[in-house]
Computed example of a mutant assay.
Amino acid sequence: MGTYLTPIITRTRIGLRGLAGKVLAVDALNSIYQFLALIRGPRGEPLRRSDGKITSHLVGLAFRYSRLAIDYSCRFIFVFDGPPHPLKRRELEKRREMRKKAEEEFYRLISLGEYEKAFSKAVVAVTVDDWIIESSKRLIALMGWPVIEAPHDAEAQAAHIVSRGDAWAVATLDWDALLYNAPRLVRYVTITGTEWLPSKQRARRLEPELVEMSVVLEKLGISRRQLVEVAILVGTDYNEGVRGVGPKKALKLIRTYGSIERLPESIKKSIPGYEDVLNIFMKPIVYETYRLEFREPDYEGLEHFLVDENEFSEDRVKTLLERLRRAWGKQLQAHLDMF
């Protein structure tokens, strides 16, 4: 879920054209969760093949990113989470419990025929298993894009990749990439341009937004370390935060006192061990060396994987393969034009 910083972060709408020709480091699980929540059948159930294995994520990965590749000449580096940091395990356990309750409510509503209400629970009830992760990695590799597994948090590794100039921005909905010092972050990289809001029972129109670290810090008048301390006061995946303190109040506190260390003891006692959380963001564990190889898609392998193994429509897969052929051709031509 990441840290809630939305009210204080400056964003610029750039549209899909603002992504043209860019390489994006994608927070893979962030995208996969979106597909699992939103790509569903008429009764709110995820799409499945005949043996029951879920395929909603494969539909989303194949068709969103092939469209972005052909229409906007984008390329992608998909970064997956590694084993969770010990401090994050408690948060992950809370999320599992929340999803379990939402899943139970989802099936109760389905049994009553209340499909619209059930869909709102489906968005929360999403779970990811080994099949979903491994099948996603296989599909991405067949499409010719690099797959990297981070030591811990995918956003930390993605931020590092962008910082080194191997990608233009981190593509994620979460703000944690900023805390990990990503120079640029792009939100809402989507073709359909809508997001379902469960609490309001409606969808809203979305457009890609660019967030630049230098702009954020200048507007807020704080340092990156202070931004991380604002996040710690609000609460992160690694700590609970201070009760009753949201982004605006946290920002005011840090501006007033300069740091958590100088806060009144009545506030500071609510975040024991904050130094460990600060260190996670300021000195993230990442791989300094990684392999980035953009390859021509394995068209035959893709057809076998999607049609034969996962029961996709042959016509839809032919459309996908044609897109990828054209996108690869455009990429080769652009490379030749450089010489």
Score class of each variant (00 low, 15 high):
A150I: 05
Y290H: 03
T12I: 01
A167Y: 15
R224A: 07
V211P: 10
Y4N: 12
W131G: 03
K53F: 10
I191K: 14
S223T: 13
E218D: 10
D27F: 03
A150K: 06
R325W: 08
V26S: 04
D166P: 15
E218K: 13
T3E: 02
E309A: 03
T256S: 10
L263P: 06
L197C: 12
V123N: 09
V59T: 05
T55N: 01
T192E: 15
L179N: 14
L47Y: 12
E275H: 14
Q333Y: 10
F312R: 03
P42A: 05
I271F: 04
G113N: 13
E103F: 08
Y287A: 04
I232N: 04
L233S: 01
R49K: 15
G15F: 05
Q34M: 06
R325V: 08
R64P: 03
I132L: 02
R96F: 00
I133M: 10
L109K: 14
L220G: 08
V59D: 01
E209Y: 07
E212M: 07
V277C: 00
P208D: 08
S199T: 12
L185V: 15
F35K: 10
K53A: 12
P83R: 02
M1Q: 09
S31K: 14
D166T: 13
D308P: 01
E134H: 15
I54D: 00
R326Y: 07
L109N: 07
R243P: 00
F106G: 02
V186P: 14
V230S: 02
A159Y: 04
T236A: 00
G246F: 02
V23G: 01
A334F: 08
L210V: 10
R90Q: 14
I32P: 05
E149A: 11
G52D: 02
L278I: 06
T319K: 14
V245T: 02
A28H: 04
R40M: 00
P183H: 14
A158L: 11
Y4G: 04
R108T: 04
L336M: 07
I148E: 07
V23T: 12
S135Y: 06
E296N: 06
R13W: 00
Q157T: 06
D129S: 15
G273D: 08
I254G: 06
I267W: 03
F80I: 04
R295V: 02
P84S: 03
L139H: 03
L61N: 03
F106H: 02
T256E: 15
G244Q: 01
V124G: 00
K101V: 13
S199L: 14
R96S: 03
R202H: 11
P146H: 11
E155L: 00
A159S: 14
Y115N: 06
L109G: 09
F78G: 12
L173V: 14
T289L: 04
S120A: 13
P83K: 05
L112I: 10
I267R: 06
V124P: 05
V79T: 08
V228P: 04
